[in-house]
Design a protein around this nucleic acid. Sequence first.
DNA 1: AATAAAATGTAGCACTCGCTACATCTGAAG
DNA 2: CTTCAGATGTAGCGAGTGCTACATTTTATT
Lengths: 183, 183
Amino acid sequence: MSRRDELLQQATDYALEHGLIGLSLRPMAAALGTSDRMLLYHFGSKDALVIAVIDESTRRSSEVLRDLPPAQTVRAGVLRLWEVHTDGQLDRCQHLYEQASASGLLGDEPYRSAVRQSNEIWAVALVDYLTACGATRTGARRVVPLLDAALMGFHLDYGIEADSADLRRGVRDLADAVHRLTE
Amino acid sequence: MSRRDELLQQATDYALEHGLIGLSLRPMAAALGTSDRMLLYHFGSKDALVIAVIDESTRRSSEVLRDLPPAQTVRAGVLRLWEVHTDGQLDRCQHLYEQASASGLLGDEPYRSAVRQSNEIWAVALVDYLTACGATRTGARRVVPLLDAALMGFHLDYGIEADSADLRRGVRDLADAVHRLTE
DNA sequence: AATAAAATGTAGCACTCGCTACATCTGAAG
DNA sequence: CTTCAGATGTAGCGAGTGCTACATTTTATT
């Protein structure tokens, strides 16, 4: 593994823990046991580093989805998806995506492009998982926009305290709706 | 209107246009025809100013919802809600909320508290609108978590190009699901 | 008009930011 | 061993940050 790749792994870990918003090179470099100078040497600029981190985070999260054992039904699959969303690895990746997305809201680069690409990869992974749970491919594709939006919305609204009765019922309602739409 | 209130209105306008992330006092003050010194004098600190701006934005958006003529059915109401979401005033308020929410994801104050309060006010406004569209109060309350999450998710995913076929179908699916759940 | 209080302007402090110039070190090829 | 390119350390630049000290002007009250 090249030095750049090593640093990318560590930088992604750091960003997943500390967030993208307000990220600055010097504290990150210190935590990684290197210097801002080296990060810029290997990545070219802060923007390029941020893009690489977003890409790596997207890669990791879709890998999680690919390795997730399919559920018996689409309804169960959606419930499982939400469980995974609130669980360590994916939770942080989702945070990172949401931060990047919010940062790109007004069209600011590099977030806008990075987020769009990330979103496409994620949508494909979602479709694959739903089909593995028994949905037709067209049905899965049809329902992914709603599913993705609702999952992200739940995650953003209840991000910290992911354990309210309202939330649980909301997720159940979502699972039912998605199930019905893929029949 | 006190000087503070005048400045708050202008500051909110500015934040709605330029975003919360990376907001800094001096450019904002210059655009408002005042100085960072004065903003800090009237609001005490940047954090306090940001909180005030979030509150004002929340007030404006729930006012939009309160003044929105009810639709004939819940389904039509949801479609109307999405239209309003992509339309000038509310669109920007939603952007601001999403930026604040993303900033508070890891628990950072003052965003965390401000966002929670904003979210509660918004949920109440949503319930009121749904009931005005013919939903029962319990039905509306039940479905608001899913509705709010999905609307925000759509907004975040398709924030810039709010005109794709996928998105339109997603919104229609959401409207159907919400309609069914409030019957 | 005198006085207190609120509002504003000026200047700057201490700090962080991304980034760069330049020197140095390391390790493999010739 | 020499050479030379890639990797790293040191130091610092110029700009921007939130915020403050202090003086001054404006406004309202007695």
